[in-house]
Design a protein around this nucleic acid. Structure first.
Length: 114
DNA sequence: CCCGTGACTCTAC
DNA sequence: CGTAGAGCCACGG
């Protein structure tokens, strides 16, 4: 997986690979954790490029909990199916997001792998 | 080099 | 909780 801006893409792949099962991360969160805040769309581009096809790409969703792909598309249904298989509650293509204060939020959403 | 596009996000209403 | 608009960045035409 070495194509677009190798370091950046690689960092994104590592972040995605580090997302625990049953947990989801927003595109923006992935970008931030990969060291490129504000590049959410680039994360999406990388995932769309298939660079993370072997990784748990289905654990990456939009900031509002909606899945990025069309729910009706094959990949969209696949993403929902995988998330549900991991115990993530999904209704109408939307992931139930943990509603918590900022500090606790960070704990639930982005546990630093260090 | 300008312009449209997209697995995005935030703010307002 | 839902839509609308503007900002955003890299890429292809």
């Amino acid at each position: 997986m070495d194509r677009i801006t190798p370091g950046w893409e690689l960092a994104v792949c590592e972040v995605v690979a580090a997302i625990p099962a049953g947990q989801v991360l927003a595109y923006g969160q992935v970008a931030r954790r990969a060291g490129r805040p504000g590049r959410a769309r680039l994360v999406a581009r990388i995932l769309a490029s298939g660079a993370a096809h072997e990784l748990p790409w289905h654990r990456v969703v939009r900031a509002d909990g909606r899945i990025g792909l069309d729910p009706d598309s094959a990949d969209g249904r696949e993403q929902v199916r995988r998330l549900r298989a991991e115990g993530v509650q999904v209704d109408n293509a939307r992931v139930r997001m943990p509603r918590a204060p900022a500090d606790l939020d960070a704990l639930l959403w982005a546990p630093p792998p260090d």
